[in-house]
Amino acid sequence: MDITLIWYLVPAIVMFCCGVYGFLTRRNMIAMLISLELMLNAVDINFVVFNRYLFPSSMEGWMFTLFGIAIAAAETALAIAIIINLFRVSKNIDVRDATKMKN
């Protein structure tokens, strides 16, 4: 049985949708961050697979993936730093409680 393009695209889109679902339903900020990471990695899979199966003569998708991984790492580091700061101030990282400004 051949492993074709669709075998990779379906898991990627499932990962992406899990990420969106997790981002919208989880209430712990670290869990939300993990969901975001799932979404970004699904994108990386998409780029690699499209490049490998459809356009193997160039490397644009692979290069994009490398940069995508670096950007995802930077984003995560920054988000974790902000979450740690928030935890120091309020001893709580539940987004339901981060509603002081709502009026």
Binding site: L33, M39, A42, M101
Partner: peptide, 22 residues
């Protein structure tokens, strides 16, 4: 308030970049 704003901003910014990248 500054921290609360920052966490809201960073989560939505990453979420939106992920959608854009998709």
């Amino acid at each position: 308030e500054s921290h609360e704003a920052a966490i809201k901003y960073v989560l939505t910014a990453v979420f939106s970049s992920a959608i854009l990248l998709m």
